[in-house]
Amino acid sequence: MSRQIVLRVNGAPVSVPAGVTVAVAMTIAEQACRTSVTGEPRGPLCGMGICFECRVIINGKPHCRSCQIVCEPGMDVRTNG
């Protein structure tokens, strides 16, 4: 059942099981989702879309809450740092 799909995280290809969220992909890619105002690396906190710590830039669109978005093949995910 674990079909793999490939997306890009900060330019590098990452293979993840189909159906996982972008937040999960960031963990698999061993990357923090974002850099805070004072430069700290941040990842998901609440897992339910209210803390905004998991934000990434998806296909050029900033402030996407990665814990709420399922990965799609070819997605371009970038962090703001």
């Binding site: 999960v24 989702c33 998901p44 906190l45 609440c46 897992g47 814990c67």
Partner: peptide, 26 residues
Amino acid sequence: FLPFPGWTLPNVVGAGGLQALVKSGL
């Protein structure tokens, strides 16, 4: 969530938060 030193480190997550992440494939 209550703050404590180091709580902003990646992989410090809520309890329900980690469960939600695991359910979404972590």
